[in-house]
Deep mutational scan, measured.
Amino acid sequence: RLTVMSLQESGLKVNQPASFAIRLNGAKGKIDAKVHSPSGAVEECHVSELEPDKYAVRFIPHENGVHTIDVKFNGSHVVGSPFKVRVGEP
Rank of each mutant, 00 (worst) to 15 (best):
residue 18 A to E: 03
residue 70 D to C: 06
residue 77 H to A: 11
residue 72 K to Q: 14
residue 87 V to Y: 01
residue 1 R to T: 14
residue 44 E to T: 08
residue 53 D to N: 08
residue 87 V to G: 01
residue 82 P to Q: 03
residue 57 V to G: 14
residue 76 S to K: 14
residue 22 I to P: 00
residue 12 L to Q: 03
residue 85 V to L: 13
residue 6 S to T: 15
residue 36 H to W: 11
residue 80 G to P: 05
residue 72 K to V: 13
residue 41 A to P: 12
residue 39 S to H: 08
residue 53 D to E: 06
residue 23 R to M: 04
residue 20 F to Y: 01
residue 80 G to L: 02
residue 36 H to S: 11
residue 71 V to D: 00
residue 86 R to T: 14
residue 44 E to M: 02
residue 49 E to R: 12
residue 22 I to H: 00
residue 28 K to Q: 14
residue 61 P to E: 00
residue 14 V to N: 03
residue 35 V to W: 13
residue 8 Q to D: 14
residue 65 G to D: 13
residue 31 I to Y: 02
residue 55 Y to D: 08
residue 5 M to Q: 01
residue 15 N to S: 08
residue 89 E to I: 11
residue 88 G to P: 07
residue 85 V to E: 10
residue 60 I to P: 00
residue 89 E to W: 07
residue 49 E to H: 14
residue 67 H to G: 02
residue 61 P to Q: 00
residue 30 K to Y: 15
residue 16 Q to C: 06
residue 51 E to P: 07
residue 6 S to C: 14
residue 42 V to N: 07
residue 68 T to P: 05
residue 77 H to L: 13
residue 74 N to T: 11
residue 1 R to Q: 15
residue 76 S to Y: 09
residue 39 S to R: 13
residue 39 S to V: 11
residue 72 K to M: 09
residue 62 H to T: 10
residue 39 S to L: 09
residue 62 H to G: 13
residue 35 V to S: 04
residue 12 L to H: 02
residue 43 E to F: 15
residue 44 E to R: 08
residue 61 P to D: 00
residue 76 S to E: 13
residue 87 V to M: 01
residue 8 Q to L: 10
residue 57 V to E: 00
residue 29 G to N: 01
residue 76 S to L: 08
residue 44 E to K: 02
residue 68 T to V: 09
residue 16 Q to E: 07
residue 63 E to I: 13
residue 14 V to S: 12
residue 15 N to H: 02
residue 85 V to D: 00
residue 86 R to C: 07
residue 37 S to D: 04
residue 45 C to T: 05
residue 41 A to C: 06
residue 71 V to T: 12
residue 23 R to K: 15
residue 23 R to N: 09
residue 78 V to S: 09
residue 43 E to L: 07
residue 64 N to P: 10
residue 90 P to H: 12
residue 81 S to G: 09
residue 46 H to W: 15
residue 42 V to L: 15
residue 63 E to N: 05
residue 62 H to D: 13
residue 27 A to M: 14
residue 57 V to T: 04
residue 76 S to I: 13
residue 3 T to P: 02
residue 82 P to T: 01
residue 56 A to M: 09
residue 18 A to Y: 14
residue 24 L to A: 05
residue 13 K to L: 05
residue 56 A to D: 12
residue 49 E to T: 06
residue 54 K to Y: 11
residue 17 P to R: 11
residue 13 K to Y: 08
residue 29 G to S: 04
residue 28 K to M: 09
residue 82 P to Y: 02
residue 30 K to N: 05
residue 63 E to G: 06
residue 2 L to I: 15
residue 13 K to H: 08
residue 59 F to E: 00
residue 10 S to M: 12
residue 60 I to T: 10
residue 37 S to C: 06
residue 25 N to V: 05
residue 50 L to V: 13
residue 70 D to Q: 08
residue 66 V to W: 03
residue 46 H to P: 15
residue 24 L to S: 04
residue 22 I to M: 12
residue 11 G to A: 10
residue 17 P to C: 12
residue 10 S to A: 10
residue 56 A to R: 09
residue 86 R to G: 14
residue 33 A to R: 00
residue 76 S to V: 07
residue 54 K to F: 05
residue 50 L to Q: 15
residue 85 V to P: 08
residue 55 Y to V: 13
residue 30 K to D: 14
residue 2 L to V: 12
residue 53 D to A: 04
residue 48 S to D: 09
residue 82 P to A: 02
residue 48 S to W: 10
residue 77 H to R: 08
residue 75 G to L: 10
residue 31 I to A: 03
residue 10 S to G: 13
residue 63 E to F: 04
residue 9 E to T: 15
residue 45 C to F: 02
residue 14 V to P: 08
residue 51 E to L: 04
residue 67 H to F: 09
residue 36 H to C: 10
residue 32 D to I: 07
residue 5 M to P: 12
residue 62 H to F: 08
residue 52 P to C: 07
residue 37 S to N: 06
residue 17 P to E: 13
residue 89 E to V: 04
residue 55 Y to R: 13
residue 52 P to F: 09
residue 81 S to W: 01
residue 58 R to G: 09
residue 46 H to Q: 15
residue 24 L to G: 04
residue 7 L to P: 11
residue 31 I to W: 03
residue 52 P to V: 10
residue 68 T to E: 10
residue 42 V to H: 04
residue 20 F to H: 00
residue 24 L to W: 02
residue 26 G to V: 03
residue 76 S to G: 11
residue 31 I to G: 01
residue 7 L to N: 03
residue 55 Y to A: 12
residue 15 N to D: 14
residue 79 V to E: 12
residue 34 K to A: 10
residue 51 E to T: 07
